[in-house]
């Protein structure tokens, strides 16, 4: 019993972080119908910002989180302007954006590799190696903090989307871009904004990831599959779905890791992605797979 509870807690904490990693991807897909294959590589960029701030200046990763988000959000605006804006009128929008974001992922990986080598890194503030003990339960502080901060950010994002005027505009654009435009929403501005928020979330996730997982520039290949499965199971574009799917899959992966073997743990996500696409492509909270 204690063992099950233990695995559950670890799964949920990691699931929180994965939810944050996926939420930006989901938001960008929802508003712009772009599957941003570069998302995980930008998370890694955020992790490096946090890493160097810690290493050179001793800044705590959680303190660095807002800074990393803002830097990455600004990079998001640039990327949108340089790369995606001119695609909006392209007849091959989906193909172009998939290829472009894939190319971007490779460029980011290459650049980070060139700058910082492919050594595994991890940020180690005190709490990353510390833990709470409750009876027999062992709760690593780093994962717990990261999970809590992630879920807090997601709750904030959800409240913003639900209640603010810009949040209304983002949701409206997600559900029906043309109708939103006809009601006076500047959908181009909303696209830039959503992309900036999405990449800002990648930056935030990078700060947390930096002390939870070890990372190196090429790690994003593994993460994109993991995030895809979370976003697809959640129903592409649904933030709530992403969170539920992340927690769900992460708990399953934790059990698989504990009972079958750690090497099988990540495979959980890949198998899930495959099965979901075959059985229920619209995911838990998504629309039927016809997309507008």
């Amino acid at each position: 019993m204690a063992e099950i509870l233990q695995i559950l807690i670890l799964g949920l904490a990691l699931g929180g972080v994965i939810a944050l990693m996926g939420s930006g991807l989901s938001l960008v897909f929802g508003v712009m119908r772009i599957v941003n294959l570069a998302h995980p590589s930008l998370i890694i960029a955020g992790a490096y910002i946090t890493y160097w701030a810690f290493k050179l200046l001793g800044v705590d990763p959680i303190v660095m989180l807002p800074v990393a988000s803002v830097i990455m959000a600004a990079i998001g605006v640039l990327l949108y302007r340089l790369m995606l804006e001119r695609q909006t009128k392209s007849a091959k929008y989906s193909e172009m954006t998939v290829l472009l974001t894939f190319a971007l992922a490779m460029v980011v990986e290459g650049a980070l590799g060139g700058l910082f080598t492919n050594t595994q890194r991890i940020v180690s503030p005190d709490y990353a190696t510390d833990a709470f003990f409750i009876g027999d339960l062992f709760i690593p502080k780093g994962q717990l903090y990261a999970g809590i901060v992630s879920l807090t950010i997601i709750v904030g994002l959800t409240l913003f989307l639900k209640y603010s005027r810009l949040g209304y505009a983002i949701r409206a654009t997600t559900q029906n871009r043309e109708a939103a435009e006809l009601l006076g929403v500047n959908v181009n501005f909303i696209s830039v904004l959503a992309f900036a928020i999405g990449i800002g979330l990648a930056g935030a996730a990078g700060s947390l990831v930096s002390f939870v997982f070890s990372f190196f520039p090429a790690k994003h290949g593994e993460w994109i599959a993991m995030l895809m499965s979370v976003v697809v199971l959640g129903g592409m574009g649904s933030i709530l779905g992403t969170v539920v799917a992340a927690l769900f899959l992460s708990v399953i992966a934790a059990f698989v890791g504990a009972w079958i073997g750690a090497t099988w743990s990540t495979l959980t996500f890949f198998v899930a992605l495959f099965l979901i696409l075959l059985v229920r492509p619209q995911g838990l909270f998504g629309e039927k797979p016809e997309m507008a």
Binding site: Y168, R171, A172, A179
Partner: peptide, 16 residues
């Protein structure tokens, strides 16, 4: 397709 299907009636009016 003039509406926002996953918004409530009131939210749709608010968008209006």
């Amino acid at each position: 397709r003039a509406l926002f299907p996953k918004m409530t009636v009131r939210e749709n009016l608010r968008m209006g």
